[in-house]
Simulated scan of single mutants.
Amino acid sequence: MPSRVLSSAKAKRAVIGVAAAASLVGTLASPAQAATTLMPGGKIYAGAVGDTTTIQNATGTTVGVHSYGRLEGSVPQGRMISLDSSATWRTVANAQPGSAIYNNLVRWATTIKARGGTILLAYSHEPELSSKTNMGTAADFKAAYARVTTIFRQQGATNVKHTLQLTDWAFRTSPSDRVYAGNWYPGDAYVDIVGADAYNWYTCGEGRGNWVELSTIIAPLLTFGKAHNKLVALPEFGVTKDSRRAQWLTNAKNYIVSNEAWFAGVYYFNHPPTNLKNADCVWNLSTWAEYSAYGSLLKDVNFAY
């Protein structure tokens, strides 16, 4: 891993983290508590979902990994891990010592604790989607999220940053909408980082023919994070194949760096669509210009893996 020189980000993030406790809506109880949300070294973790090897070979730099795993299975490697389960949220929320769910959560917690280093963990990503209505209500999700966080903390997994992973639309829609982020927010006591999966669909999948910059897509996420004095993350972000993709990535990097004090992690979705409705989207990077643009982010002094 190439050496890194600490930028002013660490000091900047520390100042904002403390000041925000006194000035923002929905703050934590004290500046000391606010400071605990900062990432080690003032860095932003950067990487990808899916094919990290090609990005690494094309850019000549280390690529952080965001992986996905099931509670019932093994704990995958990754700087960020999304944890899902076949159990309903209410079942997880009610998990008691000795039950299979409780034992699996303890196994995950102790495994990640033993690895050391900061790990971003997202329980039941994108819970607001209609495809997850069989998992329960928003209240059930919040109770389950709190239970997972509590069990991890009871096991002493202090290296885990509990990350809420919603879609970008959850932050952009009206508060009256069922999927609005505020309806799914488990509370400041249980969330360390607020994340959004952000995509520029353009004309594919859910797109409506509008080319949208990342800054526009995630501005509401940043507003929400600041209101709760929480760092933000992009567990997934992507842009469908287009001649403007390299410039879009460059603009994305510039926006993230300009707001670096509030970012914890960013992971490009270098993976084929996982939903048949979006089968025509091409997220994987493919040209030298695109790899160069994303490689510039990975090699930036403010980013780590």
Rank of each mutant, 00 (worst) to 15 (best):
M1Q: 12
V5A: 14
L6R: 15
L6A: 15
A9M: 13
K12Q: 15
R13L: 13
V15Q: 14
V15P: 01
I16G: 02
A20E: 11
A20W: 08
A20F: 07
A21V: 08
S23P: 03
L24M: 14
L28K: 09
S30Y: 09
P31M: 12
Q33T: 12
A35M: 14
T36L: 14
P40L: 13
P40K: 11
G42I: 10
G42P: 11
K43D: 08
I44V: 14
A46G: 13
G47Q: 06
A48R: 03
G50A: 11
T52Q: 09
T59A: 14
G64T: 07
V65S: 09
H66M: 13
G69I: 04
L71T: 03
L71M: 11
L71N: 02
Q77H: 09
G78S: 11
G78L: 02
R79H: 05
I81V: 15
I81S: 04
L83Q: 00
D84Y: 01
S86P: 00
A87Y: 04
R90L: 01
T91M: 07
T91V: 13
G98Y: 13
A100W: 06
I101V: 14
Y102H: 15
Y102T: 07
N104Y: 05
N104C: 07
W108K: 01
W108S: 04
A109M: 06
K113Y: 07
K113H: 08
G116H: 10
G117T: 08
T118W: 08
H125D: 04
E126N: 10
S131Q: 09
S131E: 08
N134S: 11
M135Q: 07
T137E: 02
D140K: 01
A143R: 04
A143P: 00
A144F: 03
Y145D: 03
Y145T: 00
A146W: 00
R147I: 00
R147H: 05
Q154Y: 00
Q155N: 10
H162G: 01
D168H: 03
W169Q: 03
A170P: 01
P175R: 04
D177R: 01
N183F: 01
P186A: 04
D188G: 05
V191Q: 01
D197G: 02
G205I: 09
G205K: 10
G207F: 02
G207C: 12
N210L: 12
N210I: 12
V212P: 03
V212I: 15
E213Q: 14
P220S: 12
K226P: 02
H228R: 15
N229G: 12
E236P: 04
F237G: 03
F237M: 05
V239M: 09
D242K: 13
S243Q: 10
S243F: 09
R245E: 06
W248I: 01
L249F: 09
T250L: 09
N254S: 12
N254Y: 06
Y255I: 11
Y255T: 08
E260R: 13
A261M: 08
A261L: 11
W262E: 08
W262Y: 13
A264S: 15
Y267R: 04
F269R: 06
F269N: 05
N270Q: 15
T274L: 10
L276I: 03
K277C: 00
N278C: 06
N278S: 12
A279P: 02
W283D: 05
L285P: 03
L285V: 11
T287C: 14
G295D: 12
D300L: 07
A304M: 09
